[in-house]
Amino acid sequence: MSAKPLAPAIDGWHTMDMHQPHLIGTRCIDCGTYFFPKQSSYCRNPACDSTDFEEVELSRTGTIWSYTNACYKPPEPFVAADPFEPYAIAAVQLEQEQMVVLGQVVAGVGVEDLKVGMPMELVLETLYEDEEDTKVTWKWKPRSASGAK
């Protein structure tokens, strides 16, 4: 583990609670639509013209809508480890928010370990390191394997 301080890969998109992190979204005060990434100046529900939003922490658990992996190094702005380590990606459905959020799956869990409908939870893990910080981002992790890490 690097001794560099932890910093979010994108500021303000999730809490920095390393045990029970949440994505930070917004919710329309008028119609209740959730937004991630945050949306705070206009509501995208065509039946709503609200300009009032509250910042909310999104559910940190959901179920897999679908999943895949990345076997090849993505182009910039992705910062890849050298050598590149393939990773799985999950699209996870959040029940209360009725939305699907993409994210990498934690290291060590491959597509062979995943299935549509599987319960997942949100964790923080390293995306890459730069000269000052270890940049962390949200990743999905099977709930059956929770507790460790």
């Binding site: 994108i10 500021d11 809508w65 993409l102 549509v116």
Partner: peptide
């Protein structure tokens, strides 16, 4: 560095075009 651009964000987080095709195919 353009986190307001969804196309920039998804590449930064490692989500390429084949990612979406893979998700649909697996489903």
């Amino acid at each position: 560095y353009r986190p307001e651009d969804p196309d920039w964000v998804r590449f930064y987080l490692g989500v390429t075009n084949p990612t979406y095709f893979g998700l649909y195919a697996r489903r």
